[in-house]
Design a protein around this nucleic acid. Structure first.
Lengths: 145, 145
DNA sequence: TCAATACCATTTGTGTACGAACGAAAATGA
DNA sequence: TCATTTTCGTTCGTACACAAATGGTATTGA
């Protein structure tokens, strides 16, 4: 049997050295920590809530862009936040395509009560890293945006 | 109105500096590149296929552990790989709970034909980074496992 | 004015991803 | 031997994430 380049290539493929795999594992770690520290609110839901608090009334798609979510994704997230009374939607009188989303008092209260935990979740996720390593990781990930 | 610590905290929360958000965005970037370069096979499916090629016949849950997938998740992935004829399942005579998974000839051929692209996807995902930055990122992400 | 274009929200379908619970089967220990 | 515990595969429910298609609305530019 002759030496097969495809075999050599395939044998040398190391899953645990691929970015995609490592990103997936790191995300799993983060989501597990988030669910434990802030149960009842997912990471994406918190991201949307936080952005909406800071931006003020915003259209649904615009909020999606601000939080790196697809139009179809932000819809589901917004629906769940509305169902829980954290966010409310009103039609835009100037543009009948738009639904303005805004945070309710309850939503703002939950956001403010959760902000500390949210930051702690970030540091806990990166707990295996030193302070300078954490900085480096954030800078490197930001470059991939 | 008195100075409110919660307000200050909430105002200083920066979504785009949180690991979770950056990890999500980096994963989106990676998955988009993967889907473009290797259409018809998802990143998770390829990971399972690759591991199974390297491990040889393996039980479903064991393959899940090797690829960092939940038992419920690996089941769906394995089902789709089996439906496409890339993987086949056989009962383990020694342990009647087990289904041994193994790669078909077609599955192995697809894996070997895709291995180059898989590595290129990794480097393309990290294209905005220099060689040393890529090394650093992989090392930092590995520490979070 | 009218047509092309862009944007908004929604729906459908597929594929992860996890928790929780289940029955069957195996391994362990007293 | 018997009871406890663990493992294996499965199912259900919830929540992202994206592609693609739809229909409504606004903007623009000829």
């Amino acid at each position: 049997m002759h030496y097969d380049f495809a075999d050599a290539r395939a044998a040398s493929y190391r899953l645990d050295e691929q970015v995609g795999f490592l990103l997936r594992r790191a995300s799993q770690r983060h989501l597990a920590i988030f669910a434990q520290r802030l149960p009842g609110l997912t990471a994406t839901q918190f991201a949307a809530l936080a952005k909406l608090c800071q931006l003020g009334p915003t259209s649904q798609n615009a909020l999606g862009r601000a939080t790196a979510m697809d139009a179809a994704t932000i819809k589901g997230v917004a629906d769940r936040l509305r169902a829980r009374g954290l966010v409310e939607a009103r039609p835009d009188p100037d543009d009948r395509r738009r639904h303005y989303l805004s945070v309710t008092d309850e939503g703002r209260a939950l956001y403010e009560a959760s902000a500390i935990a949210a930051v702690e979740i970030s540091t806990e996720t990166m707990a295996p890293l030193s302070a300078s390593e954490r900085e480096a990781l954030l800078a490197l990930l930001a470059k991939l945006g």
